[in-house]
């Protein structure tokens, strides 16, 4: 029963990791770079909700969209200042630029909020209720539901709408997309902003579950990155799978190991999965390498 309990916990944590991973994947597909500042965007989401809801007393349902907008704006600024100038630079260089951005943003948060830990007022209620022998927390259930709903929505958006289609086309082949009359510039920016919004929502959902400080971006970012790569960096589907694998691994670690080593055990699982089933675990694409 305890295992089932932890599985549910892992699913809820994993769907948030999946959301963060989704941000990584979207940007990776469009820009060809892992955006290490994605974790900071999550932090921005969490902190803007904290300010709007807890400090200014806005009701949650009004504060959340505003916080998402704030994060989208921040995402746009990041894209404008550090992605656009480096569009034609090589991969490692761009990666380092995103690391620079993440250091920058993290310390701006530190300047504003200090190094103290904040406990976040719960959004969906944290009074646990019992179903049989299981103890469920509404917040966790909602997190899972919202995680999956967002992935479904995103899939729908990318497959059915005109904007979504042009984004996918841009991710596939920029030149061809441009020839088809797609505004590549706008698609790239749009993808980035949407990824930021997803990150912000993930940040807001995880904030009530964790005690957090300015460093939350680093923690959650690393998890998301791991989940994204585990999922194969393909569109949507893989990221969520990767996130859930990671989340469940982490929670099962509590059952079978010590909680001290919780995050280490998650990484050991990750490591073993990578070693035993190397590269492109979830990815369906078969790459042909040419010299």
């Amino acid at each position: 029963m305890q295992i089932l309990q932890q599985l549910i916990q892992g699913l809820s944590l994993g769907s948030i990791y999946g959301l963060v991973a989704l941000g990584y994947v979207l940007i990776y597909q469009a820009w060809g770079v892992l955006n290490f500042a994605q974790g900071e965007v999550c932090a921005i989401g969490a902190f803007s909700l904290l300010v709007l809801h807890a400090e200014l007393g806005m009701p949650v349902y009004a504060a959340m969209p505003v916080a998402v907008l704030v994060s989208m704006l921040v995402g746009y600024v990041i894209e404008f200042l550090s992605f656009r100038p480096l569009e034609n630079a090589n991969g490692t260089t761009r990666l380092i630029a995103t690391i620079g951005v993440s250091i920058c943003v993290r310390n701006i948060l530190r300047m504003i909020f200090g190094a103290d830990y904040f406990s976040f007022p719960t959004i969906f209620g944290d009074t646990p209720f019992q179903v049989g022998e299981l103890i469920l927390v509404p917040q966790n259930l909602w997190n899972t539901a919202i995680g999956f709903a967002l992935v479904a929505l995103l899939n729908l958006f990318l497959k059915k709408t005109r904007i979504g289609k042009s984004m996918r086309a841009t991710a596939q082949d920029k030149e061809a997309a441009r020839l088809m009359g797609i505004n590549v510039r706008a698609s790239l920016t749009g993808t980035f902003v949407i990824a930021s919004a997803l990150g912000a929502i993930a940040g807001m959902l995880i904030a009530p579950v964790y005690l957090f400080n300015f460093n939350i971006g680093a923690t959650i970012g690393t998890k998301g990155y791991a989940a994204a790569v585990l999922g194969g960096l393909d569109f949507a589907s893989g990221a969520m799978t990767g996130g859930i694998i990671l989340g469940i691994a982490e929670c099962l670690a509590v059952v079978f190991g010590s909680s001290e080593y919780q995050s280490a055990i998650a990484y050991i699982v990750l490591f073993l999965v990578l070693i035993l089933k190397p590269s492109e675990i979830m990815s369906k694409k078969k790459k042909v390498e040419k010299v």
Partner: peptide, 22 residues
């Protein structure tokens, strides 16, 4: 880790660093 390429190698080194720290 030699069986892994690119980002997959990167993530395994990340995991290694994290494990070492713990």
């Amino acid at each position: 880790a030699l069986r892994l390429k690119g980002l997959y190698l990167a993530i395994s080194t990340l995991a290694f660093g994290e494990i070492a720290y713990r």
